[in-house]
């Protein structure tokens, strides 16, 4: 076989192989995404066109002979042939010009396209697709499957949004932020009682340290962990905390946090909506996330200590 074709095949195969690696390296591959598909089509045609065209001309170097009418002038000994334009080139040039004009004037008139319109459509399409998918799954799932599904979804949100501060293992990266493996536990309530809490930006402001201590604090934590039921800590709670959080623990209509949901998804959604400028540091708001995403990441985090 001609060495040339061999080189062509090697280069072509190398580039197509590279493209294959890139596509398969991504979760979901082409993902039915038109942009992915067009890009890969572009990449593949780039390789194929270049290889074919270059082979064509190199073949001419190997087999053709230089001929034609020489122009009279030379420059420093360089002469020029008066050859006609290569037909393929000239025709393609003409075609692209015609195509360009068609595109401007008739195909996609310059004022007819809006990238924001395109964006709005993309959002609708994707949102509907995922919503439909979600609802279908949910209607077929058992309760435990549903919970697990939310937790998995939450983990996926966690990794893109929260990991950067709370770490891959949610340990809070050496005290940079809250260790979420121990959040929403008996211990973290005791901590809030002993050290106070601040930064959720409630009308009531910050919660000072030391409203209770010792055995009381431990008991109150048990009481809250039991969703404000049972004997233990009940009285101590009413004395120390109800003034702000209400006897029902619901936070007096939004004046302070709802303790019934402490340790659960609902509380986390609240943190995400408010942000927290606390003792450890400063957590931004996450109003960018959808309600479903907030709920899911809440489910994931409240599952961490279980």
């Amino acid at each position: 076989m001609n060495k040339l074709y061999l080189w062509g095949i090697i280069m072509g195969a190398l580039m197509l192989g590279a493209t294959y690696i890139a596509v398969t390296g991504t979760k979901g591959g082409l993902n039915d995404d038109i942009i992915n598909i067009l890009t890969i089509a572009g990449a593949v045609s780039l390789v194929i066109i270049t290889v074919f065209v270059v082979i064509k001309y190199v073949r001419q170097m190997q087999t053709d002979t230089a001929d034609g009418v020489l122009a009279r002038e030379t420059w420093d000994g360089i002469a020029e042939y008066e050859n006609e334009l290569p037909v393929g080139w000239a025709v393609t040039f003409l075609l692209t010009i015609v195509w360009g004009m068609w595109y401007f004037i008739a195909g996609y008139p310059l004022n007819a396209y809006s990238q924001i319109g395109e964006y709005n459509e993309e959002v609708v399409t994707l949102t509907t697709k995922f919503e439909k998918d979600f609802n279908e799954k949910m209607s077929n799932f058992s309760e435990t499957e549903k919970t697990q599904y939310m937790i998995d979804m939450g983990e996926s949100v966690y990794i893109t949004e929260c990991m950067i501060c709370h770490g891959l293992t949610a340990d809070g990266i050496d005290g940079l932020s809250t260790d979420l493996n121990n959040w929403g536990t008996h211990a973290s309530i005791v901590d809030a009682i002993v050290n106070g809490s601040k930064g959720l930006n409630y009308p009531m402001g910050d919660m000072a340290a030391g409203f209770a201590s010792g055995q009381d604090a431990t008991d109150i934590a048990v009481y809250i962990m039991n969703d404000l039921s049972g004997e233990t800590g009940s009285i101590a709670y009413d004395n120390a905390c109800a003034g702000c959080h209400g006897t029902d623990g619901k936070g007096l209509d939004g004046s302070s946090p709802d303790l019934l949901v402490y340790g659960e998804s609902g509380f986390i959604v609240d943190v995400l909506n408010r942000g927290k400028k606390g003792f450890i540091g400063d957590m931004p708001k996450f109003d960018r996330l959808s309600d479903k995403q907030k709920e899911a990441v809440g489910a994931y985090i409240s599952s961490l200590n279980k």
């Binding site: 950067i164 501060c165 957590m283 960018r288």
Partner: peptide, 8 residues
């Protein structure tokens, strides 16, 4: 500025 903070 919406999602990272001074201390971070």
């Amino acid at each position: 500025g919406n999602y990272r903070t001074t201390d971070w």
